[in-house]
Nucleic acid binder design. Structure first.
Lengths: 206, 206
DNA sequence: TAGATTGTTAATCGATTAACAATC
DNA sequence: TAGATTGTTAATCGATTAACAATC
């Protein structure tokens, strides 16, 4: 029982959740089907049903899925029945944009601390948060039991920052630095590098 | 022959390329091996050799791969032997951060035009580029034969912007808007949504 | 030569899809 | 009831890995 659920399945759950919330916002309909959801996402209905079936039986034959109920279930599965406090490292233009982004909070995350090494930035405010020195990072993470971090530093600093975050207790990192980061098992890392994404697409262009 | 190369393989090529450039920058070594590259990226050496073998024989038994040569080959395969001009739609804080990002140019892309709908932004400059009205988008794309676009608008505008970009001739879109976009076959879309990435990771956290 | 490493084959592993009984 | 849709099984499809002959 409870055999390991593939990571690729986990990765689709937030996509399902996102689209279900859109359905909630757009319609007054209370239910949807794997077919409708699949249509909207470009995913086969069979795959959606199979993915969900790893976690339980959330639908009803003949009528489909109750949207609100499925949203609740997915939130529970993904541990989104809380708001995760997040530390941001790097207060450059990308870090600043992230600090102002209002899309985190309604979906379960909140950047609450910003760190940078640049002495000329420390003490300045971004979106109500005071930029702090990296030297205060460890204590902040420990005191508030923070598990999630975002790295928006130059590539040259990213591995060092990663090591330090992990030492301090961080378990999940989203990195915007364009390089592979080393981390021990049990620490999760996601990447966002616009250039690798663009390069993948230009393969297909003349 | 030349059977369809899996998209998942294409997606790894930019990662290989990125790491090879790091090797170039860090060392004076001229060659590397699938083992070394795999070690650095957390990918099996067999997979790297298999991926590359789709495109030719780039290595030498006993010595491995000449780094500079492999970089050149990957650039050719990915059509990076040119700089792709890019239009950016959305001049909010994320769009602004992207407009200032200096990591595009050395890796084959250059944001050269910025568009927004907000009349109060139009005419202002970001990194030397004048923010233009969306109404000028079509002509700009046609005149300069632009194939690549980045969307940094709110979700509510993104599908409309996408449709317009595609109508105007865009073939590859990187979208930061948190929703699935519909597009006809032949148009390539990549997504970057920090929240879905974070949500995938919190699944694994208590 | 001896050691290292490739490119490739075959085996394994995993993910997706098609189909359908169950049932709302 | 008839139509719709689920959850699940088995079949298909695709990707990864292990192993090794070839060879630098």
């Amino acid at each position: 029982m409870a055999t390991e659920i593939p990571d690729i399945v986990i990765g689709r759950l937030p996509i399902y959740l996102r689209e279900l919330r859109r359905l909630q916002a757009e319609h007054d309909k209370l239910t949807t089907s794997s077919h409708e959801l699949g249509e909207r996402l470009g995913i086969s209905s069979a795959q959606i049903r199979k993915d969900l079936s790893h976690f339980g039986e959330f639908g009803k034959q003949g009528t489909g899925y109750h949207i609100g109920y499925l949203v609740d279930q997915l939130c529970q599965i993904l541990h989104l029945d809380q708001v995760w406090p997040v530390v941001l490292v790097g207060a450059g233009s990308l870090g600043t944009a992230l600090a102002y982004y209002d899309g985190f909070r309604p979906r379960g995350f909140e950047i609450r601390w910003i760190f940078d090494t640049d002495p000329s930035k420390i003490g300045h405010e971004i979106n109500g948060m005071c930029i702090q020195a990296i030297s205060e990072l460890e204590e902040t993470i420990a005191r508030h039991k923070i598990a999630v971090a975002i790295i928006a530093t130059p590539a040259s600093a990213a591995q060092e920052v990663t090591d330090f975050l992990i030492e301090s207790g961080i378990k999940a990192i989203l990195s915007y630095a364009p390089l592979h980061l080393s981390a021990p098992a049990g620490v999760h890392i996601s990447y966002s590098d616009p250039v690798t994404e663009l390069q993948r697409m230009t393969y297909y262009l003349g």
